[in-house]
Design a protein around this nucleic acid. Structure first.
Lengths: 164, 164
DNA sequence: CTCGAATAGTTTAAAGTACAAACTATTAAT
DNA sequence: ATTAATAGTTTGTACTTTAAACTATTCGAG
């Protein structure tokens, strides 16, 4: 057999983030199975927390989901009757995205499930450490925000195998 | 106009991780533009750091890339002459994946670029905080590792738009 | 006022990505 | 010796992201 991991300390930051993201969403989708809202819970949470009506553009900017994809997400959540588009009388190009009564009904359960998962995920960190961790996430987020960046393109297929 | 973000403090953990991952890889792919190894740098780093020869299975397990995708990754990096498969005489089902001399040549540059980016990303955290942050990532990773999880399925398309 | 630029949102097409399932070859286990 | 398990591969399907072109509307400089 090969050696067993525990190389986590040396795991490159980018890959570490990718793995955590994947594991977190995997666990969450299990938790939220019956709600079938998968990773789009963050859209609902954003709308709920926002003091002002949200446009798709705003959600797009905040959650860093590009606006073409945003259309699909909004369509999906609309189809599940969790949000609705209402016209913004002041700007007929834009919609206001609002939670439906049905969404308001399930939000408490949603929060509960998320809190449960976070409790498991952050087990071993005390309150202070958890806050510090969150602050670090915010800080890194800001640091990276203004950096020039490209779309990540892999394109395995262009180079075919040649060594076996 | 809509309100401007800065809701980061309230950003749900999962989405926060997803955003960071995306931003980090975006920035990194810019840094590593000319190397064209995109996000697969972590495979090279893993092989370099590993004391024992790596099999695809081991890389797969460690980096949480499923083994079908692993084949593409290995093919790609092979095609770029950065790694090669060598036969494991003790088990003819398995390969040992090794860095080529070409890869050893570029590794210093790769580390340099990654360190540069990490320095930018972690700006504002002192050494202790950076270490604490990394520990937290490892801890969360372990906490989530043994959790039941599902594949994240979104499937926008099944529910078509009905409210506009 | 008005014409050109910018913006909100949509659609399409192309490419990237993940994963289950079936497959080969080989090794382990009873 | 047969059966189960493992390393790796292939294929097909479905999910996801993005660029680019598009409509409708609003903004803004002259």
């Amino acid at each position: 057999m090969t050696n067993k991991p525990s190389i986590k300390q040396q795991m490159p930051l980018g890959r570490h983030l990718a793995i955590l993201t994947k594991m977190y969403y995997g666990a969450l989708s299990k938790q939220l199975e019956h709600l079938e809202i998968e990773k789009h819970y963050s859209v609902l949470v954003l709308i709920e927390n926002s003091e002002h009506p949200c446009t798709q553009q705003f959600i797009s900017d905040t959650l860093k989901i590009d606006k073409a994809s945003m259309v699909s997400v909004i369509d999906y959540l609309s189809g599940k009757k969790l949000i609705k588009r209402t016209n913004n009388p002041a700007d007929r190009r834009a919609y206001w995205i609002e939670l439906t009564p049905k969404a308001h009904l399930i939000m408490p359960e949603l929060h509960e499930k998320i809190n449960e998962l976070n409790k498991v995920a952050l087990k071993g960190l005390n309150k202070t450490q958890a806050i510090e961790f969150n602050k670090a996430l915010c800080l890194i987020s800001e640091n990276l925000d203004n950096l020039p960046s490209d779309r990540v393109i892999i394109n395995f297929k262009k180079v075919k195998k040649n060594i076996k």
